[in-house]
Design a protein around this nucleic acid. Structure first.
Lengths: 254, 254
DNA sequence: ACAGGCGGTCGACATTGTCGACCGAAGTGT
DNA sequence: ACACTTCGGTCGACAATGTCGACCGCCTGT
């Protein structure tokens, strides 16, 4: 029986649809958006609802994602080996660098943040665990693009989305940058995704030397860069954190 | 077609099973645990896998939850109205009280933490958003038990799990306490779940006065209580935060 | 070398999810 | 106040669909 289970794929599509649109969606909206009969969509939604994956606003009748997803998402983090091993190293890195630290893994067409250590000052920051970052314009993403063929495959060959003037939008340019990244062993991104923000990332690999994720520090251009280049001391910190995590995962001695 | 979609319910059961057992589970384990034919379990797992809800460890072949759940869980938080409105109030409450602040909603047989503000000192703390707390032994839980009939229904009438010597394990005792909570308008829990930890909670209601969640402060007994009782000043802070959030939700003037 | 476990596949079967018409309620524009 | 639309939800017939259990090749421990 090689072939996905239809009702499951549809349920997944519905959840993604609900996750995408910011506001709640009605039954008919869901049905037409996914080209389903209303009855079919209703059956799936009803099941998802009683499993807790979807909730229904009692007054408007509209649907939104459910609490069970949050619980299961947390369970995902609990068993995430890379994250568990990286926790203390990420903390150390944040303390040593004075900047925000992210830990990300490849997921679909982006980088999923699985750990986030706030910059050790008292500015108000929002936790970004569970959110996605683009592959072609962030340090985390470019590290994965450089070392993980699967990531490169996800990128495709079409023009890429532009976020700032410095975003690389031509896949060929990204490939060239990836060659450089492989050569020197780390990636950076200076205002390629958000104005005023720069980051430096390095690869994490498992015991078999497979790429499994990336760490980065991220912060204001003013503190992360100097004369237009990222500070070498930060690069060293990130790389050594990445090596430490990889070693912890059993990647072997260096 | 009133009746859940079989394959979907089974998929949900599989994900919950994977979330429960700390370690990864093999195909056969899943199949026998849920009393499914191996082929059936495999079909569901394969679909879940290609949707990103489940991942398979390539060397052992065992299954674990997937990254898509984390992403969707985050999306759940993004649209969560209660949480959005409560963010700043929770921050203020943490600053004013000097203690950890939790925001929780009823989910199945427990309280799901949807927001968590660290105690404003520099101790290392782990984020508990997405985790569950028991209903009958925490301030959050008891608030919900006192005001939300659905929560009370979830509790059942059997003996309750005991965590410390002070845990109330008889539903009748809990009901009596709930009556008190309704009378005075707030709940506390002193070492009923974790030794050394006390908390104070109050109800949040929506524009229709329906209970929708609860806030609490939580901290060491030494700072939260005085002479065996919770500090009145903290009670006042929590209650006014709860009122503020309720008002923000449109619960009307008080 | 063997036995027993694993994850995964296959094809027949009938259960199960799907479809589109239909319903009452609520909203909307006139 | 009216007809008209659109909403969420239900129903029953149909066949497409998911389910089942035997089977396969592989690896592991004996």
């Amino acid at each position: 029986m090689p072939g996905p289970i239809q009702s499951l794929s549809r349920a997944a599509a519905i959840m993604r649809l609900l996750a995408g649109g910011e506001r709640r969606l009605g039954l008919s909206e869901v049905a037409t958006a996914l080209d389903l009969a209303k009855g079919t969509a209703h059956g799936i939604l009803r099941t998802l609802q009683q499993e807790g994956f979807v909730e229904q606003d009692p007054e408007s009748g509209k649907y939104q994602l459910g609490a069970e997803l949050l619980r299961l998402g947390q369970s995902y983090l609990d068993v995430h080996e890379l994250r568990a091993r990286a926790l203390v190293w990420a903390d150390d890195l944040a303390r040593a660098s004075g900047e925000t630290v992210y830990l990300g893994v490849l997921h679909q067409q982006g980088v999923l943040i699985v750990h986030h250590v706030f910059r050790p000052d008292d500015t108000r920051q929002v936790l970004e665990v569970g959110s996605m970052q683009p592959l072609h314009s962030t340090a985390l993403g470019k590290v994965l693009l450089a070392y993980d063929p699967v990531a490169r495959g996800q990128l495709g060959d079409g023009p890429l989305e532009s976020y700032t003037l410095r975003t690389l939008t031509d896949p060929a340019d990204v490939d060239a940058e990836c060659a450089l990244i492989r050569e020197r062993g780390w990636a950076d991104s200076i205002e390629e995704t958000w104005e005023g923000v720069a980051s430096i990332g390095a690869l994490i690999q498992d015991r078999r030397r497979n790429p499994v994720g990336a760490v980065c520090v991220s912060g204001p251009v003013e503190t992360v860069t100097e004369d237009g280049f990222v500070k070498p001391s930060l690069v060293a910190s990130v790389r050594s954190a990445a090596r430490a995590i990889s070693r912890d995962l059993g990647a072997g001695r260096f």
